[in-house]
Structure formats: C-alpha cells, structure tokens
Design a protein around this nucleic acid. Structure first.
Lengths: 343, 343
DNA sequence: GCCACATCGGGAACCGGTTCCAGGAAGCAC
DNA sequence: GTGCTTCCTGGAACCGGTTCCCGATGTGGC
C-alpha cells in the first residue's frame, strides 16, 4: 500500500505537485507529470478515496433507492444506472426499500445522511417531503425515475397517456367490454403508477362513451399475478371481457397463459395489451406499449451528474417525459361479434 | 453539518471522550455517555465515514460483483445479500460485470482496489488467480457464491449432483430418450455451472446404461431462450425426446410454452424438469429441484462478516454445499409407450 | 495507611490526501 | 532595464474523526 508521499519521493517532487499531476488540476509541466505518473504506476499507487473525500467533500458515489430488484422494469433501470455510473467513474451504492417503514427510516437517517453518497437516484419511490428536504438540506442532488416528486427533476413515461393509448387501441378494434388488470391503486411504494394507469384507462373509456362496471381487477405485477387474476376474471363466460388492458407485460403474459389454459383463444376470443416491452412480449406475441427502462436509468445519471457538476443550484428542476411506442403483435385483433358472451 | 468537535463542546467533554462515547469503545462513564449522546442527537450529528475510515482503514462497505441483475437467480441472491448487509450496518456497492474484459479490468484495478470496500462477494463469476491474489494481497476477504474458487470460501449447490438427481427422476419414470437443454458450456462468465450440470446429466445416463446421441441443446438462460430451443428440439416428431432436463426453470418454462404451442401435451407426451424453484414453476406446474438463492446471499454475508471480524487469517477456507430438494409437480410423469416417436 | 488496579478523561499525533499561498523562473511588451 | 503576466513548484494548513499515552481519581485488600 503505497501512499502519495511515496510516489512524490520516488518522482522527486513534493506531495502537492504529485497530487496535481495525478488529479490533473492546477499547473504541472508535462515533464514532471510523466515522472509522477510513472512513479505511481511503478508503485501500483491508487488514491485513498477516504482521504480524498474527507477534504473535498465528494465521494464519487451515488446512492440508489429502489423497491424491487427482481422485477423486469426495476432490474433494467438498475442495469442502466450502473453502466452509466461506472462509465463516469462513479460507484453505485444500492438500497432496496421494502415496505418496512423502519428500514426506510434507517436508510434515510443513517445511510444516506452519512457523507457516503454525493447524490441519490430514487426509482419509483414516492419520497415524502421530509425525505426530499433532508437530502436537499445536505446539498445532495436528487433525481427521480418513474414518477414525479414535486421540486426535483425526474423522468418517466406519461403513465396516464400511455394507458389511454393502450385502451384506445383496444377500443379502435371494436372492443367495448374492456377490463383493466393492474396494480393496487392504494399501494404507496410504487409512485402512484398504478392509479395513473387506471386514470388513463378510464379516460379512454369515457372519451369513447363506454361505461363498464366491474372494469378493474388488481394483480401483483408479475406473471404469476397476471395468471391468478386471469383465471379469476376469465372463468365465467357470461362476464368475460373481450379485451384486457394489463398494467404491465408480465401481468399480460400471465393472463395469456391463463386464457390458454382455459381454452380461450387469443386474439379470437380475447385481446390483451400490456405496457413495457418486456423481452417475453415478443415470444408471446403480445401487443404492448414499449418503454426503455435501461435508457431511463442512463438518462437519470446524466441529469444527476449535470447537477453535481453544476456550481450549485443552477439547472432547471425539469420533469422529462419519455415516449412510448405501440408495438402491435398477435394478441390483439378486431372484436368478433358476440364471441361467447350473452348474459 | 455538525462535527464531533461541536458535539464535544456542547457536551462539555473532549473530542476523544465524545468519540469513545459514541463508538462504545473504551471507558466512558454512563453519565457522560448520556450527555454526549444527547448533544449528538440535538445537533443531528452523524459521523463522517470518510474521516473514520481514513484512520481505521475500514469502510463498512462490501463490493458485490455479479454478471446479471435481471435474471431470477441473480436478483434473488442480490436481494439476500443486500438485506443482510443493511442489517449488519454495511453498505453494498454494486458492480455488474458483463463479458466486457476492459470493464472487468477497470472494476478490479480501479474500483475494488481503492480503499472503498472492506470485502468482496463474487456471484457466479469465475475469478482468475490473479484477481483473487490481488484482493487477498489487499487483505480483503472474499466469498464466492455459485461455484468454487480455489482457496477462498464459497457456497453453492452441488450442480453435478443436482443435475444427476433431476435426470434420475426422469429415468425413474421410464424415460430413455432424454435431452438436456442448458447453457453453453464454454461460456466463461458463469462459473462453469453449465458444464457441471451437463456432467451430472451424463452421469445419470451412464449409471442407467443409457446412450443417447444428440442429447444436448444450448439455450440462453431465460424463458425466451427455452422457448426458442423448445421449438427447435420438439419440431420433428421422429427425433423428439420424451423428457427434457432443463438447465434452469426459466428454460424449462420456455420449453413448456413451446410444447403447448406445438400441440405437444405435457406430461403425456413430454416430461420437463428444471432447477431453481422459480416462482413461476408453481404457476406452470413445473417439477424442479428447488434452491434458495436469497438464503445463499444471506449465508455469504455471514461468512464474510465472520472473516472481517476474525483477527486476520483465522477461519477455514471452507466450501459450503447447500442442499436442493425435489418438488414434483405435473410436468413430469411416467413415460407412455411409444408416444409418437418411431423412426 | 499504602499499594495495586480499574475506571475515566484530555492532549496530541496521525490517517492520506487537497488546496491555499507564496515565491521563483520565464516570456513578453514597453 | 522594468513591470507585468503566466507557468510551475514546495510548504503548510486542513478535512474529521480514532487512538495511544498519560495523568487523575476512586476503590478495595492487606
């Protein structure tokens, strides 16, 4: 374990010159820079981040709070964030926040507050004003993904509009008896994504002058969740919808599996549309509105690094809305007249 | 931002006493401890980890290197590690290693070497002797999950034996024309898991005196991968196996989806078995050998913390073998005589 | 009453960098 | 030549804790 003083000695310069040479700040002649770099390489020198950040106050480390790791959307976002941070020479410290309030408090009060991280990315977590304020008071930039937090820059798709488009697609195919299978709207964690999508769904129906009662069923955001909901919703031919807008692709796929098992033909007897662009959507021929979570992660890092480099309180607290694109596959089709349903 | 000196002043003691009171090391009377703690609470004081680790040399931070985030097994392991580390007051710094050799070099030479982490957990990554040596030279404990690295403690299931058991299950049901759909055995990343499972598969066949040619097909470790391989393998009735041992549950499920699409009935015409205990296995009625990746992550942390606390080079460099249990569902059944196959 | 020992608190060195400041050398215009 | 700016370097203070060492006090045994 060599230290800067060793490098300086070997290179025949002072500590301060060695520091300047290696960090690239301040004046150093090309000649001495080479000497210092060579000495450093020779000794296998690496800076002590602890010492450096003690004096500079910056850690080159970003904290990420995220509710799930093992769900497609979140995994993708995380991968995108990680790749971008490494690229920029930053470390990523991961905090998974479950619904455990005590854990959450600890993460904020203990982990994030210590001068461990320069900034925080919050993925699909509805931060409380108190939490936001705390981080801002510490001067730590904050970027949100997957929903908007008042006062901080964030980026996400437009959940209302995306849901509306998905539903509209079904309506344009002639469907009237449409159901939405999505997440529990009262779940706090997930940034109100669920309720936003429900609102978009309702809006599309309203615009088309369609009234349905019993138009919603909640499901866990997974294939299993979709499967269970599908079995429940599709079981009775008399009440069965002709089309389902699923809250995400995983739910949609679960519904397709359930339909297949119940002998319901897709898209002849049932159309299904999702949101995400999950890799399985292609395998299952699922029509979906595609988003790119990995890119969202990368963009969030960009925004964040911009804020870190900005000489404090400069840049706009913007909210970036990302586009989604409709990819039509074989899970949606024009409604056949009176498939089975007849009350 | 209050510092220790402020706390000491408010409490009316010296810096050293304040430090002892807060860290719990050394003699401090109960009375002064209370005073210091109260002062700290009042000021909202939190230690600067940078300053602390500069002098102690410990960061309370563990690095995790992992090849994937968005695959079930890896996500589960990561969740297990994260939960245990937080519990123990440690941070988790995440490094995703893709097949990019340059990235890998950077992570090891630059990120892990800086005194950022106290220890490293390597998930399913076959570390080179050089990499192991480097970390050990730095005195950083190292634990492996999902395969064994010579000289360092690690834990994993017995891939050979698990694969043998899975195959044996198929054989015991009367199957003879058995195929293994698994990962590419030459892939470096994945810790030779693939080749180990193939070896177990072959061993079971050999023990039963079965010879099959064309008994292997490689697939990506995902539902899509299994689906693609399934279509290819099951297309021709003349060469179709009566049972498939899949390298993991996701592949198995992909095969089941493909079979259903091809009109092949499971388990009447085809038995499928996997490895993992993926939550979807239950949904799909998949027979599988269950492992618990989350627990593996937790155990790895235990091992690691044990090593950190040990007064250097103490504990055994053990390799922990974890059990897997066979869960029989409806995807495997006794072989029906001459289903379709007849060359 | 004295000594040994445990308990408690303060002073100061130290961890390993970064940066401010001062000062010297060199280049250029006048 | 002088005065100014620009380039380069070294000395020293400093970031915010931890810990070693030493002295003071209290306590119990003989």
């Amino acid at each position: 374990m060599s230290i800067l003083a060793d490098v300086a000695r070997i290179a025949g310069v002072s500590k301060s010159t060695a520091s300047r040479a290696l960090s690239g700040r301040g004046y150093v002649s090309e000649d001495t820079r080479r000497k210092v770099e060579q000495a450093a390489a020779e000794l296998g020198y690496v800076v002590s981040t602890a010492a450096a950040s003690l004096v500079t106050g910056r850690t080159r480390n970003v904290g990420v709070v995220i509710p799930y790791i093992n769900r497609w959307y979140f995994g993708e976002v995380l991968e995108g964030i990680e790749a971008s941070l490494i690229q920029a020479g930053y470390d990523l410290t991961l905090y998974r926040l479950s619904s455990d309030a005590e854990l959450r408090r600890r993460v904020f009060d203990y982990f994030l507050v210590r001068k461990r991280v320069d900034a925080v990315i919050s993925v699909a977590i509805a931060l409380s004003p108190h939490e936001v304020h705390m981080l801002q008071a510490l001067g730590k930039p904050l970027v949100g993904i997957g929903g908007l937090i008042p006062g901080i820059p964030s980026l996400s798709i437009d959940d209302v509009e995306t849901a509306r488009l998905a539903t509209e697609h079904l309506i344009s195919l002639g469907h009237r008896r449409i159901m939405h299978v999505g997440g529990d709207q009262h779940e706090q964690m997930d940034f109100r994504v669920h309720s936003q999508r429900y609102i978009g769904f309702e809006r599309a129906l309203r615009e088309a002058g369609i009234t349905v009662d019993d138009d919603f069923r909640d499901a866990e955001f997974s294939i299993q969740g979709g499967y269970a909901a599908g079995l429940a919703v599709l079981g009775d031919p008399r009440t069965r919808p002709t089309a389902i807008f699923a809250g995400c692709d995983e739910i949609a796929i679960g519904i397709m599996v359930a339909a297949r098992q119940l002998g319901i033909s897709i898209p002849n007897e049932l159309s299904v549309i999702g949101i995400d662009g999950h890799p399985l959507a292609e395998t299952f021929g699922l029509t979906t509105l595609v988003q790119h979570p990995g890119d969202q992660g990368a963009r969030a890092v960009e925004l964040l690094l911009g804020q870190i480099d900005a000489t404090a309180d400069g840049p706009p607290k913007e909210h970036l809305v990302l586009p989604t694109t409709l990819t039509v596959r074989s899970s949606t089709a024009v409604r056949r007249e009176a498939p089975v349903a007849q009350a």
